[in-house]
Design a protein around this nucleic acid. Structure first.
Lengths: 210, 210, 210, 210
DNA sequence: TATGAATGAGCCTTCATTCAT
DNA sequence: TATGAATGAAGGCTCATTCAT
């Protein structure tokens, strides 16, 4: 018989834990992991230090959870798009639009991801990299499928295409602002369009021949 | 008869200052700005703390100098390529190859640049952003020139094209390793090729139509 | 069954805070504010640095508390004597004896007060000066009352009389030693006697005419 | 054949030394001895650190010189007044006026004297105290002479009278401002008048009997 | 006589974490 | 489940002083 008697159970059961993760995400994105003190996090979450150490083993633990949450979501979504029916070009396009729109919806997560990787404990860091690499390979396999079927040019290694595109994705947190005229999906369509176009078979690697 | 009499005086005139900047660059890239202690920097440079504070006003000052050095170099190089004669596609291609090769040659600088911006004092941060914006605009103007002259597609805003491409550039530090099979110029040619291809006039924005 | 159950809770409720203030007072008086390190204070109080920064925001904060304590006590005592019934000469005499005896009882506070004022933050300094000025004015009004009623000579501005007398008070810390033959009240009676005599109406300002 | 060829020799021979002492005096009075860095002193004097360490053995040495200068001047002046002809009351009065006027003319010296004593090396401190004590005794002997000759009341120890009066003198630095309406001599006459009056023979030690 | 780069010890403060309650 | 006092290590920085020139 706990607090779930009234209100949505999910949000009532672990409100402290969620508030802590939310506050930590916002602060880590704004000021960096090392630039944020545990005191600031618990103050922003409206709890005390003792409470935080009840739910999380350490400050690093908070960061680890944030990474886990991001990776879980990204993997789930990519799987859905990659496993969908339809031509490979469409699947790549849709997955590309989605990853950009999703990244923009969770821009704080993205800011943290590439800025704070080196703060994780070595083993955690390796685990994150491994999971990330699986994600990369999933996307690369899609590209390679397009290359095998002659839908995409094959003079650029598929791995390199993925690094090319995901650079643009990861960079979003450094320039995108919600106040601008373009929504996340707008950006997604533009970027995915550039990606698909860049993969069209070409005559040569140099500057446009025409 | 040492090198300072007639030879290159660079290594003898400011050896301590240069050693400090070098050590700081390496360490900041490896462990982050906040993860690196002044003690570690001076130990790596083989001097004492007092010496560091003789040449730099603070730890922040070291970071500021690193940013200034990067910006100066990047601006100089882009100007050279943008002002060169020849068709706009060639100029964009050459500049794109160069920025990637140069970034890879100075990968530590690149790692620091986008990870530690928020550690700079607000005014310094603004100055860096302003200088960075000028660089962005210089590149964007090249793209826009190509769009005006119908060499490039014009259904994607030139600013967005620049953000798309430079995401890939800035991301290099997160995956490129010198031990791989591809040199900086190799990567540059591949990425610049993808960029140029992505800018070819297209029928529509969706997944490749034909 | 310790003192905190029913006895005086003072020693048990805030032992660390009080020990810190006591140690700081003693050391600041001996070696000056800048000549005393936080390390020395916490060692003398038998706690760690972290504990000190749990109770006080900074080393300056300790000094500020010492000033506040002194000012509170002095103001309270002067008010009591000034508001007492009886002729003005008696009230001035009693207040003068008391301030001297009290100063001698808290000689460390007195040593700190006039030696370390310039170490306070500008705003704190102003607040202390303002409170000190109110004290001065309270005493001055007593003197002025005596001048108006012809009990005291009125050829010396009352403000100047107060500065004259309180110089002697503040100077106590520089020469008084408890080992001497005279108690605080002894000194108080002598100094108050000199003050009262100096205020007797006179023929002229020059050297004694008779 | 040194720089004394042009200009007043005295001021030309040791201009650096004098400028350093002047700058140090001003800064020590403003910010305290420990609150003033050697760098600030040499900057204010317009010389370099090396120059300072050429003329003075240490920062402490500067302070020692300032104390020596003050003591020398005060002793000289008191001697002149004490050894003058005339009644003892007049000599005390004149000496009292002079010490106040002189103190006000050199208020920075006075501020330093009582605030920074504890910064001197133990031996220097003892030497200063000894010299100071000789000064005190010289003045006390004047008072005692007046008591022996029945010009002054003798129910207050002469030593105490001197401590009483010199408290007022030393306190000047804490409240006197040149912008006020009263000159140094004005204050001197008022304070000396209060002193002389306070020394008139009285009926009893208590509050004025009338 | 004067320079200024370099030293090295020490200072104030912050902070993640623990633990008795 | 939660508190908050207390710890202890580490961090950035200042500064009087020295020394080769």
């Amino acid at each position: 018989m706990n607090g779930s008697a009234a209100g949505t159970p999910r949000e009532k059961d672990e409100p402290v834990r969620q508030r802590l993760l939310g506050a930590a995400t916002r602060l880590f994105a704004d000021k960096g992991f090392e630039g944020t003190s545990v005191q600031e996090i618990v103050a922003a979450a409206g709890v005390t230090k003792g409470a935080m150490y009840h739910y999380f083993g350490s400050k690093d633990d908070l960061l680890r959870e944030i990474y886990a949450r991001v990776l879980r979501m990204q993997t789930e979504r990519l799987d859905r798009f990659a496993d969908a029916p339809g031509p490979v070009a469409t699947r790549v396009y849709d997955a590309a639009v989605d990853v950009i729109a999703t990244t923009i919806e969770n821009l704080d997560d993205s800011k943290i991801f590439f800025r704070s990787m080196h703060q994780l404990a070595p083993e955690t860091q390796q685990a994150v990299r491994a999971e990330r690499r699986r994600y990369h390979e999933r996307f690369r396999d899609l590209v390679a499928e397009g290359q095998r079927t002659r839908v995409f040019r094959d003079d650029v290694p598929a791995d390199l295409v993925v690094d090319f595109f995901f650079g643009s994705v990861h960079h979003l947190g450094l320039w995108y602002h919600a106040e601008g005229p373009l929504s996340g999906v707008d950006i997604g369509r533009h970027f995915a369009g550039l990606l698909l176009t860049s993969l069209r078979p070409v005559d040569g690697p140099g500057p446009a021949s025409g």
